[in-house]
C-alpha cells in the first residue's frame, strides 16, 4: 500500500498533464460535437517540438509557444480536410494523425525518441521534482481555463458553441460554421500540443509514439470528470476543471491497477475497455428508461 501512496503525487502530476490535454479535447468533443483523432498526432508533435527547440538552446517558454503553434497548425490541416475537402471529421483527423507520425519523426531528427535532461536544461516541470511540477501545472491549468472561459464568453466563442449545438440555426444567424469548426480544431490541437510539450518535460524525453491513444485518455478524463462532478459543476470553467480532475482520477486508478499487479503492457487494453463502458452508459440509460415505460393501466382491454 505504501508504494501505491508514494506513487500518488506522480500520478496526480501526470494526470494533470493529461488533464490539460482533455481540456483541449473538450473543445472539439463537447463543444463542437466532433471526435477529433488528430490529437493522437498533435500531442506527440507538441512533445517533439518542445524537446528539439529546448535542446537547441531556446527559452522554455518560447519552446512551449512553438509547440502550441505546431499543434494549431495540425488542427488547421484537419479543419481544412473536414470543411474544404468535405471529409468526415473522424477520417480527417485520422489522416492528419497519420501524416503527423512522419512529421514528428522528422522533427525528432529521424529518431524515435530524444531525451531532454532536466539537469542540462531549465525545464518547468520534471518527475524529479514533483512538488514544483504540481504548482507549475496548477498555474498552467488555471490560466488555460481562464482564457477559455473568457473566449467562450465572447461573440466568437458563442458562435463556436452555436455551431456545435445547431448548425442550421448558426447559419441562419449568419455564422460561418466551417470557419468556426476550423477555429475549434486549431484551438483544441494547440492546447493538446502544449500538454504534449509538458509531458515531454515531465518525463524527460519526447517519443514519436507518446500520443498514441491520447484521444482515449482524453475522452476518459472528460467522461470521468462528468460522471464524478457533473452534478456539482455547472459553470463552464468548472466543467473544464472537471475534465482535469478526470485526468487525475484516471492516472490514480492506473497507478492503482499497476500496483495491483497489472502488466503495464495491458494498460491500453484496459483503458479502451473502461472508456467503451463509460461511453455506453448514456445509451444504456436510455434503453433502460425506454423499457420502463409502463403498459396502459387496465391492461390490453384499455389499449
Amino acid at each position: 500500500m505504501l508504494t501505491f501512496i508514494s506513487s500518488l503525487p506522480g500520478a496526480i502530476a501526470q494526470g494533470a498533464v493529461w488533464g490539460i490535454m482533455a481540456v483541449g479535447l473538450y473543445i472539439t468533443y463537447k463543444i463542437l460535437d466532433l471526435a477529433d483523432l488528430t490529437v493522437d498526432g498533435s500531442f506527440g508533435t507538441g512533445g517533439a517540438v518542445l524537446v528539439v527547440c529546448t535542446a537547441g538552446g531556446m527559452n522554455i517558454f518560447l519552446s512551449l509557444l512553438l509547440a502550441l503553434l505546431a499543434g494549431c497548425l495540425a488542427g488547421l490541416v484537419t479543419g481544412i480536410f473536414h470543411t474544404k475537402f468535405g471529409i468526415p471529421a473522424i477520417l480527417a483527423g485520422i489522416l492528419t494523425q497519420l501524416a503527423l507520425y512522419s512529421v514528428n519523426l522528422r522533427v525528432l531528427g529521424g529518431k524515435a525518441n530524444q531525451p531532454l535532461s532536466v539537469d542540462k536544461y531549465n525545464l518547468l516541470i520534471s518527475l524529479r521534482n514533483i512538488n514544483k511540477s504540481l504548482i507549475v501545472l496548477a498555474i498552467f491549468i488555471a490560466v488555460i481555463i481562464l482564457v477559455l472561459y473568457w473566449f467562450f464568453g465572447t461573440e466568437l466563442g458563442h458562435s463556436l458553441r452555436a455551431t456545435g449545438c445547431n448548425q442550421a440555426m448558426a447559419r441562419a444567424n449568419g455564422i460561418n460554421t466551417s470557419t468556426n469548426k476550423i477555429i475549434g480544431f486549431v484551438l483544441s490541437n494547440g492546447i493538446v500540443a502544449l500538454s504534449g510539450g509538458m509531458l515531454a518535460q515531465y518525463q524527460g524525453f519526447a517519443d514519436v509514439n507518446m500520443g498514441r491513444g491520447a484521444i482515449v485518455i482524453g475522452l476518459a478524463a472528460i467522461i470521468i470528470g462528468e460522471v464524478a462532478f457533473g452534478k456539482l459543476f455547472k459553470n463552464f470553467a468548472l466543467k473544464l476543471l472537471a475534465a482535469v480532475f478526470g485526468g487525475i482520477i484516471y492516472y490514480i486508478v492506473i497507478s492503482f491497477v499497476l500496483w495491483l499487479g497489472l502488466p503495464a503492457n495491458d494498460l491500453k487494453l484496459l483503458s479502451a475497455i473502461v472508456v467503451a463502458f463509460f461511453l455506453g452508459i448514456p445509451y444504456w440509460k436510455n434503453k433502460i428508461a425506454e423499457n420502463r415505460v409502463k403498459p396502459v393501466p387496465g391492461g390490453d382491454a384499455n389499449a
Binding site: T154, E155, H158, N173
Partner: peptide, 14 residues
C-alpha cells in the same frame, strides 16, 4: 447570437 446576425463576430463580450 440573433442580435448580431449579419455582423462580424469578434472578441467582444457576447
Amino acid at each position: 447570437l440573433a442580435s448580431r446576425r449579419g455582423q462580424a463576430r469578434g472578441l467582444k463580450w457576447a
